[in-house]
């Protein structure tokens, strides 16, 4: 995964959470769909590579990542704006930061 892409998703998570905390739901909706799709794909990509990465000395906390994905989907399904903003800013952003660390550890050459 390219690090600059992960950084873009961090920015997107911050922007979406700002809009949601400001209760600008219609503004946030323009970005949520695409961002959530991308986040899901990235998360699933790392979860699927968990065994491979463990063999390379990198531990992927699958349970935590799955829990974050679940929180994201619960927030969307129940239209819970605060939960969605919190999940974006404090879980998904943290997840993306973790993936950046992983990529750096893997060599960072792709960045």
């Amino acid at each position: 995964m390219e690090i600059h892409k992960l950084k873009e998703y961090i920015k997107a998570a911050e922007n979406i959470s700002d809009m949601l905390y400001a209760n600008d739901v219609s503004g946030a909706q323009k970005f949520i769909g695409e961002t959530v799709n991308n986040v899901n794909n990235i998360y699933l990509g790392y979860i699927n590579r968990a065994d491979e990465l463990r063999n390379r000395g990198i531990d992927i906390p699958v349970d935590i990542l799955l829990s974050q994905m679940k929180n994201l989907m619960t927030a969307i399904d129940s239209k819970d704006i605060i939960m969605l903003a919190d999940t974006m800013l404090y879980e998904i952003k943290e997840g993306m930061q973790f993936f950046i660390d992983v990529e750096n550890e893997l060599g960072g050459a792709q960045a």
Partner: peptide, 8 residues
């Protein structure tokens, strides 16, 4: 439903 952010 939380009425405030659970983090900050």
């Amino acid at each position: 439903w939380y009425l405030n952010s659970r983090y900050d």
